[in-house]
């Protein structure tokens, strides 16, 4: 089962990268862009019987390695192949 995990910085955590990109956007005339935040997306296949179980496994992977829950939030999307 294909799973998509989105990892983003928690609100309140400074994102210097996002700020630099926002400045660059503004320099290109995109002054309507604000609150730029940069995260990451991890896709993986999980061998699981159903999507509930796949989501459960993905959450455990996030808690134990994929996300640093001190500064990051994660969300999980199971793309059911069937």
């Amino acid at each position: 089962m294909q799973v998509k995990i989105n990892i983003s910085l928690k609100t309140g955590v400074l994102d210097p990268q996002g700020r630099a990109v926002e400045n660059a956007l503004s320099g290109l005339g995109f002054t309507d862009a604000s609150h730029v935040r940069i995260g990451k997306q991890i896709t993986l296949d999980i061998d699981a019987e159903d999507s509930a179980r796949a989501e459960q496994r993905a959450a455990r992977m996030c808690e134990s390695l994929l996300a640093n829950t001190v500064i990051e939030d994660y969300s999980i999307e199971v793309i059911d192949a069937s």
């Binding site: 955590v13 210097p16 990268q17 630099a20 500064i71």
Partner: peptide, 16 residues
Amino acid sequence: LETGLLPGTLVRNGGL
């Protein structure tokens, strides 16, 4: 910090 033996975290330098 990643093991949790110490608290907190280290993020990208402010000046990038």
